[in-house]
Design a protein around this nucleic acid. Structure first.
Lengths: 133, 133
DNA sequence: AGTTGACCTGGAGTGCACTCCAGGTCGTAG
DNA sequence: CTACGACCTGGAGTGCACTCCAGGTCAACT
């Protein structure tokens, strides 16, 4: 199957402009073209795009994604380096999750303070006491 | 206790420039000044700063933090609205964590594929098969 | 034949969150 | 008394990841 840029955008969740942008900066190999010169994305293109958006979601900078994309073009010999990049990113995602968990705890603590105010249990202004607990 | 801007930067993990920037955009109430006109941050200032950096870490945009900061200046009457903002942010953090967990799974799957190549168990190029599993 | 709508290109513009800079003041150390 | 380092101000510059625009092509309706 092949897909117009509009369809590829819909399926990937990226905008049409972003698809062309990704191609320009070499995140994406230039897709095939139809007889009229319009882009025709393959299922493989969409699969790669899906993986790219996962990497983006993890906060990987475009610079690193470009590095990964470039390695991929260099075939199987680059597999070790690619794996290393992914392992590195895995670590950073795990760290980020832990960090967010910590923030969640702070938010819960604050929200609970506000809830206590609402119940008029006691009237300490929540934002006057830091986040000590 | 009161702290110079350098000390406040060290303790908050923000840069000196960022502290002045936060003050300019009204995230931070102007701190006290010493006799020479230099900023003198209080423990309360640092507590608020610590909370702000938590919010930043969660990805809250500065615009929303400004709203929260502004509400805080309006005293206890704004507590309900502030709580609502935090509850909202709590939800978005929880979503983000779930999203990252999903990415972690994809990364693990890919990394495992690379590991199998290394063991030469079989030789499918990991980036040629999408993220179907 | 004309109009429409999706697509094309190269390049400029946007929003965010800082970050840096020039030129100046102040208080302490030598 | 001067040299130094930390601080001050208003404003300009940066990097990132898009996003938008003008002007043009092409195939399909009416």
């Amino acid at each position: 199957m092949s897909y117009s840029i509009a369809e590829a955008a819909r399926r990937s969740g990226l905008s049409i402009d972003t698809l062309r942008y990704y191609e320009r900066i070499k995140l994406l190999d230039p897709p095939a073209r139809d007889t009229a010169g319009r882009r025709a994305y393959s299922d493989e293109d969409l699969g790669w795009l899906a993986f790219l958006t996962k990497l983006r979601t993890t906060g990987m900078p475009i610079k690193s994604m470009r590095e990964y994309a470039s390695l991929r073009r260099h075939g199987v010999a680059s597999a070790g380096r690619r794996k290393a990049l992914l392992v590195d990113q895995r670590r950073s995602v795990a760290e980020r999750i832990a960090e967010l968990q910590g923030c969640l705890d702070v938010l819960d603590y604050k929200i609970d303070n506000y809830a206590q105010i609402e119940r008029k249990a006691f009237g300490v202004e929540p934002d006057m006491e830091g986040i000590s607990a």
